[in-house]
Design a protein around this nucleic acid. Sequence first.
DNA 1: ATTAGCACTCTAAGGTCGAGAGTGCTAATT
DNA 2: AATTAGCACTCTCGACCTTAGAGTGCTAAT
Lengths: 342, 342
Amino acid sequence: MSINDRINTILNAVVHLYITKAEPVSSEMIVAYYGLSISTATVRNDLQLLEKQGFLMKPHTSAGRIPTDKGYRYYVDQLMEKEVVHLSEEEKEEVREQYKIVRDYNEIMKVTSILISRLTHNLGVVLAPNMIKDTLKDIHFVTLDNQRILVTLVTNSGLFFQKMMKVNCTISDENLEAISQIIKKEFYGKSLEVVNDEMLNQIYHYYFKYQTLDSIWKLMEECFDFTEDETRLFLGNRSYILKQPEFKEIEKLNYFFDFIEEEENLIKIMRKPILENQIDIIIGSELGQDVMEDCSVITRQYLLKGKLRGAISVLGPTRMNYSKSVSVLDFIAEQLSEILSE
Amino acid sequence: MSINDRINTILNAVVHLYITKAEPVSSEMIVAYYGLSISTATVRNDLQLLEKQGFLMKPHTSAGRIPTDKGYRYYVDQLMEKEVVHLSEEEKEEVREQYKIVRDYNEIMKVTSILISRLTHNLGVVLAPNMIKDTLKDIHFVTLDNQRILVTLVTNSGLFFQKMMKVNCTISDENLEAISQIIKKEFYGKSLEVVNDEMLNQIYHYYFKYQTLDSIWKLMEECFDFTEDETRLFLGNRSYILKQPEFKEIEKLNYFFDFIEEEENLIKIMRKPILENQIDIIIGSELGQDVMEDCSVITRQYLLKGKLRGAISVLGPTRMNYSKSVSVLDFIAEQLSEILSE
DNA sequence: ATTAGCACTCTAAGGTCGAGAGTGCTAATT
DNA sequence: AATTAGCACTCTCGACCTTAGAGTGCTAAT
């Protein structure tokens, strides 16, 4: 075993033991738990070295070591076993079971976030599929009552988008049918993004072109305005994260909840472009949020019919089980893509 | 001022001051804050009386008094001003503003839960309108892709219910149209409850009656099975409640979150029948849940087109501002009913 | 290069103490 | 009879101290 191997082993041991025990790791502990054939003094020398290089730190002079963000970074990049799937057959079965029951997209997203929470004991987050780049396949109007119309918009990948519109005059089913035909004729095969743009920019054009249908077009303008970014975010259980020792001071929890309840914060993190089938791990200070410097986020995108769509994440303390979380996200992303695409 | 009036004033003072200051209330404090023209000794005598009768208690011998559940109960039933609306014009305006923006039912529910949280600084909860007693007005099928059909079911009060169905064979639009006609013919004007029952019990009857449409009926059985009680619950912000002093011990928070994340718990409380336009206040031990004995729930139902539908609630520590919470629920229920019924 | 040995440092838990808040009782006052 | 002043008593809370022990870092030996 070369000296470099030994140093790596020791760093790995510190990260592992700290993740498991949530307490600073001492030289003695490392030797004991890893059955190393070197003395604690040697380990101490190596620990000093690792601290000087910025991978480890001590909470106080006479304490064991804990990893720094740099230490975690080195661990996830270099040391962590990525191949091994850290999921038991029971856990996998649980996921499959849950997915068997769900019926609609909302439920799928909700269940996914809960599954991630349960399996990682951190907070699971799901960003619903973005369909702005899908093309328009179909549009339907359903009259709810004489003041409300439900618009359902179906895309080429089988996703749908709904909006309720308020009207101040009754519009006959024939007229609705006519307008849906016109929209299909004009926009079929165009991406929602384009539909949105064209509709907003050229509404008067359509208005004059199909004058017979008069006031409906004003509504269409509103209806096709997707700019408000209807991103839907699903947060799983909070109860697991409360039990993490890092949150035993209520102050930390406050920061954490203030952060996650501002949806923009999470969306910004999860929207970050990631290479297909890759995992994005952001550790502590890398988040660039002072109040979240003790937390990490792991994000993975999922596919729908082969295309990147939404993302799923684990949010927890920097002292989270990274390899387990990665395994969970990998497995769930795979199952989710399958369900959505089937 | 009769002696009874004085006792009531003192009890009222203790509740008020404890709600505001979150600290045991002393005789001196009562006299000071209420400018009473009696001595602290007299107040102490009355406090002793109130304690003997079970309305107050002391955390320890040399501490001030705090209300018992019985004390809170007497307060909300007898002392609390119910008429006065404890909402500022700004707060009301905020509510109206928020409701102006929302577009669909889901969003309305979500916004409502958040508004309740924000205005009460506790947890707001919304139970979505129950439509099982509505009658069937319309049904639509939308083909998403060759394996999925979206069923939209419209009721007489303009609510709708959606379900995604998986099919293993392509069903033509003509057939879908035909079946929607048949369903409308058979079930128009019947309550969803009845539709559900009849569909489940007589599925074979329909199957033979309209044989030409063969396998679709199997799907209908599944589609109309509402028994799984698709109750939708919306929880508002958790961040306010974290800041309440009763939750400074993390243990209490754990119990709280475990409780609210089990949706059944909240549904059971909120489904309890309540007289129209009445408020239901459940205090501490009245909840019958050991772990929640320091929490209270206030529930109010809201109307849709004049009929009781869902419920909105405030969940917080027993030391919550009951009159403010009641005002918030009253105002929001009114606004919500209006929005839903307009 | 590794290790044994040991002095040193710091935390965490426990103990003591006094100040102060607030009560309850008694005796005096209205 | 109801109210009040006066005061002893009780309990908490924070400050301070002490000690055990966990763990380090250095030095000198291997």
